[in-house]
Amino acid sequence: MELLKLLSTNEIAAQVITFLVLLFLMKRFAWKPFFKVLDDRKERIASEFKKIDDTKNEVAGLRADYETRISLIEDEARKRIEQAIDEGRKAAELIRQGAREEGETILAKAQESIKQEAAQAEEELKDRIVDITIAIASKVVEEKLTFEDDRKIVGRFIKELEKK
């Protein structure tokens, strides 16, 4: 009961009112505005982070898109190069084949002409032999020489023939 003497009803009431006043003031000046500021900031940070994430995703999407595009372009380029190489190869082949064919025809023509010339020469030779033989025969007949003379004449003709 000694303890109870420490208490004063008036003071308790006054202190309750004081505290309630402080509570009211703090609610108005501290808690409400600061909660609002903190919540606003939290919200803003969250939204900024979301924005950053969105942008990141967008960038990643764009990058993937570009990468596929680049790979497509590379494929296309490779294909074109291969195609060009093929075409080149084909053209070379064609040229080579043409050259070969031309060469063959030239060769064939040359052989043909050689053959013709050889045949012609042979003909000419034959003609000459005939002419010579006739000439020899006519000379032999003309001169009616001795056997010795005949041999000399024939020998001379043969020598002439060799000289030719």
């Binding site: 004063s8 003071e11 006054a14 309750v16």
Partner: peptide, 12 residues
């Protein structure tokens, strides 16, 4: 240091 003060708060 006054019990009246702290009791007032405790009553609240």
């Amino acid at each position: 240091t006054s019990w009246s003060t702290t009791l007032a708060l405790a009553i609240c």
